[in-house]
Design a protein around this nucleic acid. Structure first.
Lengths: 346, 346
DNA sequence: CTGTTAGCGCGTTCAC
DNA sequence: GTGAACGCGCTAACAG
């Protein structure tokens, strides 16, 4: 019987830098130099090493490099969940920016509670060079207390003292669109809130209230309804509104998902949008414009949120040197703009 | 001037196992045992080590562990792109399954050409324990030739010799829904194809043709239109169809994105769906049911695709031992079922 | 230009 | 029960 243990193809399952060195008749250091384009190498040696490496299917071992280089070339992305196009777009923005800069993306979603999230934030030591964290519902500063030291973090859509962040100018957008409705003649404008602890939700409500106030419509404050950013909650609230004795003439859902849910409920009730009931959302998730009627919405460049987050992280990593260089801008506000889509009629 | 270089808080940026050992008055081996629950440790020692580790904010260094353990506890996910809810759902499925099993997810999307994808597939040595790859457009077998040896791979929705995979029973679903249309009385059923090289697209077309054939409707084959799975292409094709002298009475878009695009075009043309024109899609992305009218679609449990992919990967890793254990099932077909949504009328 | 050597931080045999 | 020493695969000084 043959002595070889019968591995059929791709026999050398793990060829190391040493194998290449031996086969090429050079030292490991030389191979390393070749692969990292450090120090001068004689052209002939270079070619030989490359050739051997290729024939051996050699690929540098990332974990080993990380250990020695003290850097992983990957960034971690921690999101509260992964459901729907909003997060999808954020991820996409981060992904393309990362690849452009030669970084990998370690993704982690679905974190309902703080403990889960904290665990993830810890587990990344030696795994990522930086973190992009989105934690709209949780009071976030405590999350980062036991973060492995020296890890740069940028927050997406939530502030924590001393950390750079990218935020959306929620209040501005919400005020804009509410004023728009008011200009169109609406007086009774219902507002579907987001989750109680959610910062975006709170800011949007502030914008809504501000617009109402400056139009002298404070009295209508009773028209705020509790929602939680899910389609289902939008649907439910719209149902409730349908049952009201004196209905509002417009509904402002504080995100698109809820607006979509509300749309379903209104449709079931046989209402025409926007003739019978004006409806606006917030976010401009890509599908919004394929709805019937096209959803009027506050536009936020979501993928851009991800991209900028990544770029700010890179900047933070560099500004992290021993020179007491200024921490760059700590916060960047992303513009929002009112949709030019279907105009509302009262 | 003070000698300390002014690091303010969280001074020890990188506390290692050695620091813990020293502070606790034990050896690094003991600390390691404590953290990995290996070998018997005296309760007192255990508590002391844990205490010190906590007070020092010690967290094991992932790269170092990986190097020594030869395993990373993370899996890589390689997708062709990240746009839209289909991929979003796949990722979500993988993410939750991974976390349940204690794995991390390294995500990589947006790979237009083979070289880019190949580069990613290589870059993962020492970074992941396994790979989930989706590459519907590219002939995939060559992608994996220079894969670092021993890395388990499961393909999502594309077959490559010897690799386990999860596929969607596209032909079945497409045949079902086409037959359904036929039973409803439709004779002229247009079909919007997916990308030419895309395996799913091809299988769906096969299903469509099979249904036509068994109903003796082969002659209508001219009703296939080129699309590429984007909303835009669905829109364009529908426009084209509108201009036809003898229109079909039904349109079968081979994915939901194109169906959504087509829906927009039909709406612009003032057609009632499904009275004036029946329209069906394929995938059942979550938003499909919020459209007006709800999109009739072939339902595919997309997140489930991701989840199963992960689980098959784990299984493959285990079955990868030196015992010549059977490679488990190499292919699993995911069920699809016809939507019970809005019925079509001719 | 190239080789030698010393870690990077941790898991793991072995002795004790 | 616990500690000392080696190795994982690679990069970075320093020699030559």
């Amino acid at each position: 019987m043959p002595r070889t243990p019968s591995r059929l193809l791709s026999d050398p399952p793990n060829v190391t830098i040493r194998d290449v060195a031996a086969q090429a008749g050079v030292s490991v250091a030389t191979v390393s130099r070749v692969f990292n384009r450090k120090g001068p190498i004689r052209e002939e040696t270079y070619q030989r090493v490359i050739g051997v490496a290729e024939s051996l299917h050699y690929v540098p071992h990332a974990a080993a490099r990380s250990l020695s280089l003290r850097s992983t070339a990957t960034i971690g992305v921690v999101l509260p969940e992964l459901h729907g196009e909003f997060f999808s777009e954020v991820i996409r923005g981060i992904d393309v920016a990362s690849r452009q800069h030669g970084y990998h993306v370690l993704l982690s979603g679905s974190h309902s509670d703080r403990d889960e999230m904290r665990a993830v934030v810890q587990a990344v030591r030696g795994r990522v060079d930086g973190l992009i964290v989105m934690s709209p519902d949780l009071e976030p500063s405590s999350l980062l207390t036991d973060l492995p030291g020296g890890v740069p973090v940028v927050m997406l859509n939530s502030r924590v003292a001393g950390r750079p962040c990218i935020t959306i100018d929620n209040a501005h957008g919400a005020r804009e669109i509410t004023s728009h409705l008011i200009r169109l003649g609406h007086r009774r404008i219902a507002f579907i809130c987001g989750p109680a602890q959610n910062a975006d939700a709170e800011q949007r409500r502030r914008g809504y209230r501000a617009a109402l106030k400056s139009a002298g419509l404070d009295g209508e404050k009773a028209l705020e309804f509790a929602g939680n950013f899910t389609e289902a909650s939008g649907y439910d609230v719209a149902k409730t509104i349908m049952g009201l004795s004196t209905r509002p003439t417009a509904i402002f859902a504080s995100n698109d998902a809820m607006a979509i849910g509300a749309l379903g409920a209104l449709r079931e009730a046989g209402l025409q949008i926007p003739e019978d009931m004006a409806l606006v959302g917030f976010d401009d998730i890509p599908i919004a414009r394929y709805l019937a009627p096209p959803l009027t919405t506050v536009k936020v460049p979501i993928a851009e949120l991800g991209r900028r987050g990544f770029e700010m992280l890179i900047a933070a990593s560099n500004g992290h040197g021993d020179d007491g260089s200024k921490p760059a801008r700590l916060e960047t506000q992303l513009v929002v703009r009112r949709s030019c889509g279907a105009e509302l009629k009262k």
